[in-house]
Design a protein around this nucleic acid. Structure first.
Lengths: 305, 305
DNA sequence: TAAAAATACTCCATAGGTATTTTAT
DNA sequence: ATAAAATACCTATGGAGTATTTTTA
């Protein structure tokens, strides 16, 4: 039994599929498969029911998972308390990041990143998805943070988190219920970002092509101000919304979410930097964004901004 | 960080020396050294102060140890709950065991051993130390359980537990105090086992050669009966004594103990069987025999029975 | 017939072993 | 001078990778 195997158990229990769990653990699917098998052999129990989809914990599996969680919580707290990132992380990293993530994610992580990895030079470019991909292939950028999955050959994806779409209502608007149903948006006139933003296209997937408003804005902050002026309502990504406002309303399950991931070219060596970045991000966003859970994934394919 | 490394931390903290800890972990000393170093590197802390003798936990080291204990407790409880000993342990084992251990240890473990490892044939021979060693070298026995350390070349030793010597007083005897001092035995006429028992020689190390009694017995059970008849007092190994009797008295620290260990010839492959046996024994003796702690070790060298 | 898990193999990092040197008492 | 820890070097287990086959919805 190894700590790694236990981490795999948690990941598989969370994500319900060997492939997804493997991607979240930054390993290949067979690696995770084999390690789970080995643990099952050692313990002499089937931990997962592979016939079900998504893959489910068996009854003894639930006990194993509970133990694993306690073990890893304790282990992580030890690593937390000390943990020197041994070989100091250094180097240069050129990062592309889409605007609807950038303004709300970077403030949460930038300071900590700088102080934890002072020997890393960060170059950050706020760009739409299409340009990020292009620059990664030209090796003008090392990493991108954007909405996934893209299913682009030549691009490696690593999922980061799942960000719910929320609705931001105009001051006068009547709010149908505390947790919106999917249909509640039909007929609403929504304020949307311009064509170059993938968030616009994802929003349209949610509310239907019909109600694309006549106004297009350049940034979410502009949109929010216009909503405040009563010019209409809009969809926002959760991290950009003021969740304390009673005009910000979430959806019922299955809540629509977008997946935010890190991408890199095939040539990019899996550096400690990537793991450091990923870790820092996950530590500084609300816990419930870590997993997809029962939420409905609004894909990013074919809607590159 | 691995579970193994954490086990090494606990062992080293317990035993205070890399060599001893390694023996208790069934690995070589450099193996343990290196793993401790690696963990220290990863955590960026000195866990142990190697200048001290015995090796001591540093301040941060104490925190690491506390974490490690919690992690391993949880991990062991998981393994306890399931753990299939995967590749079934099978085979034949010829075990020699000295009489002063045999009668009191075997009843504690034999039933459990049989039911946990039904495919193992146990052959058990109650013999004095010298014969066990001889038969191991002739490959007539696979393992021996006896008092260690022996420092015999050609014989591998693995420590098992540390068994206090206690005094069993005759019914009329006056008992000097609740916890005896080392000197309290001087002048007492002790009943002792015959020459062939190493326990006799160890007893004499404790009470001085002077007071070897005139009576020599063949077994501890005989001795106990004679003590009950008022023929004198004696020393007993803790596991053979009825600790509820108020005529059984322990020593103050540093309490004298004998080390009981498993030995085997160099050719004996380290089988799962050995580990199984060791584990079963440790699980079925009082916890405070597991470590030497502050007790005074009465060696078995030069007093082969 | 796709999508996902399992299998086959190859590779390499590293835990573990033996022999030896260094260090501290 | 002796005992213990560290170091050097080797071996081998097993974690991880890619490519492929098997399975199931």
């Amino acid at each position: 039994m190894t700590l790694t195997q236990l981490r795999y158990v948690l990941a598989l229990a969370r994500h319900g599929s060997f492939g997804k769990a493997a991607r979240h653990c930054l390993v290949a699917q067979p690696t995770l498969s084999i390690q789970i098998q080995k643990l099952e052999q050692e313990l002499g129990v089937e931990i997962f029911d592979r016939r079900k989809n998504p893959v489910t914990l068996t009854e003894p599996g639930k006990k194993v998972e509970a133990h694993a969680r306690r073990i890893l919580d304790e282990a992580d707290s030890l690593l937390e308390e000390f943990s020197q990132e041994s070989g100091e992380v250094r180097g240069r990293i050129r990062l592309g990041i889409i605007p609807t993530v950038s303004s709300y994610l970077l403030p949460r992580i930038f300071r900590k990143l700088k102080q934890k990895y002072p020997s890393v030079e960060f170059y950050i470019h706020e760009l739409p998805t299409s340009q990020i991909l292009q620059k990664i292939q030209n090796e003008e950028l090392d990493l991108g943070i954007l909405a996934t999955p893209l299913n682009e050959k030549m691009i490696e994806e690593i999922p980061l988190y799942y960000e719910p779409f929320v609705v931001y209502f105009a001051p006068e608007a009547s709010i149908p219920r505390k947790r919106l149903k999917f249909d509640d948006l039909q007929g609403q006139d929504l304020l949307l970002l311009g064509e170059e933003h993938c968030f616009r296209h994802q929003s349209l997937k949610i509310c239907g092509q019909g109600n694309a408003g006549k106004i297009e804005c350049g940034s979410l902050d502009t949109i929010k101000k216009m909503v405040d002026q009563g010019m209409g309502s809009t969809l926002l990504p959760l991290l950009s919304a003021n969740m304390k406002s009673d005009r910000v309303v979430r959806f019922q399950d299955p809540e629509p979410v977008r997946e935010i991931g890190i991408v890199h070219g095939k040539s990019f060596y899996k550096s400690r930097l990537l793991e450091a970045l990923r870790e820092t991000i996950l530590k500084n966003i609300p816990l419930d964004l870590h997993q997809q859970n029962k939420r409905k994934l609004i894909g990013a394919e074919d809607v590159l901004g």
